[in-house]
Design a protein around this nucleic acid. Structure first.
Lengths: 155, 155
DNA sequence: CATATTATTGATACTGTATATCAGTATACG
DNA sequence: CGTATACTGATATACAGTATCAATAATATG
């Protein structure tokens, strides 16, 4: 199996980058006891090929030979294992995206749909403090930021 | 009509508080051209009677003599006119709540479901700055904070 | 006050997203 | 290899919310 011979460094060139990402994820899932199957690889490939947040239905459409249920299950598995993160649009539409870091938030362009990771913003601590002031012990939060990206703001 | 004789101060005692809230909202809607109808008043009353965030379906159940569509429409109208705000639970369940301020965020207890307004937390500015650093012009955001309230944290 | 106008209602059907079921299949592992 | 079992996918189902549209009720107008 290819994935067993892979070093799990995240820099396994010369293979095409997206293929390396797929192997990476399959390897990681393997360590958690999940099997390496063709439909699952197809789902992961399709996820890795997206350039911006996508919906589950879009993924189903782009994978006509994989069952709907399998697409949804694959996506859920990837979210649960922190390989993919969920982003919520302003209209509450749920989209998905390959996850590149641990916990972080997204900037979402309302025009073109592109997303960027929100860097250098430490809201956690001030939220926790404000929560404590109201007698709450904070355990989590959901934050999405909407706007227009540099390209769309120009036009 | 009662609502026409009401001063719109938000402190119209001696009437029971929730009734005053209902009249208040009906009056406000009237100024926007919306009619004062029995089903709509029932919806507003039921909303005002809730002590914590509720779902649309819960409202339908508590109002068996009002049609589902009417409950949903009423709720939507109240959200659009900023009388009611929407809160999102961690599992993406959507709930509603009477709105007491302008723009603000909520602390939600994951145990008992109670909510508190998040005070003294000015995330807007740091979000805007972080967005600008990534070349985004921020236009909005969605933020919910989860945890346990003072009572549930004790138990 | 009668009446015209128009917003509102509610039964129903429908849409879209997501999960449950379950027999058949493919995978991993000894 | 062969077996235990995770996985698949067709289908049915659940669920939240909206669209339709004829009937009705609320307001404006003469």
């Amino acid at each position: 199996m290819v994935s067993n011979s892979l070093k799990h460094t995240g820099h396994d060139h010369p293979r095409p980058r997206s293929a390396a990402v797929v192997d990476d994820i399959v390897f990681h899932l393997g360590q958690l006891g999940y099997r390496d199957t063709e439909p699952r690889r197809l789902v992961i490939s399709a996820v890795a090929a997206q350039s911006r947040p996508f919906t589950a239905e879009e993924l189903c459409t782009s994978l006509p030979c994989v069952g709907r249920a399998t697409v949804y299950r694959g996506l859920r598995l990837l979210v649960e294992t922190n390989q993919v993160c969920r982003v919520l649009l302003e209209d509450r539409e749920l989209r998905y995206q390959l996850s590149h870091q641990g916990h972080h938030h997204h900037l979402l362009c309302a025009v073109c749909g592109v997303s960027a990771d929100l860097e250098g913003c430490n809201v956690e601590e001030s939220l926790r403090a404000a929560a404590a002031a109201a007698g709450f012990r904070m355990s989590g939060h959901w934050l999405e930021v909407y706007g227009s990206c540099i390209n769309c703001a120009a036009a």
